[in-house]
Amino acid sequence: MAMLHIVNKSPFERNAFKSCLDHAVAGDSILMIEDAAVGAVDGTVFADDLKAAMTDKSVYVLGGDLAARGMSEDRMIDGIKVVDYAGFVDLTADNDKTQSWV
C-alpha cells in the first residue's frame, strides 16, 4: 500500500518538506513540484536529509518546475528521477494513494 507524497514547498522556507520526510515510510515515493523542486539540488543544507530518505524511498522531481527556477538537472542529487506531468500522473496511478504536504 505504497503512498505518493507530493511536496510543493521549498525546504528552505517552510517545514512541510521536512515533515513529509519524517512521515513517509519505506517503499513510499516523494514527488517535488512547484517550489519544492529546489530541494532536488545537491550541496544544500537540506541535501543530506533528502539523501537519507532516498535509502528506502524513491524521489522524483517535476522537471518543468526545476527548470523554471533556473536549476539544471546536472545539479541534482544522484538518484532523483525527473518526470513530466505524464510521469506525475503515472506516479499517482502506480501508488495506492497520495498525500499532499501543503
Binding site: 510543493n8 513540484i33 512547484e34 517550489d35 513530466d84 506531468y85 505524464a86 506525475f88 500522473v89 501543503v102
Partner: peptide, 14 residues
C-alpha cells in the same frame, strides 16, 4: 499560487 496551474496541467495530462 502555482497550485492552480499545477492542477490544470495535471488534469490535462491525466
Amino acid at each position: 499560487h502555482q497550485s492552480a496551474d499545477s492542477a490544470l496541467q495535471f488534469v490535462r495530462a491525466a
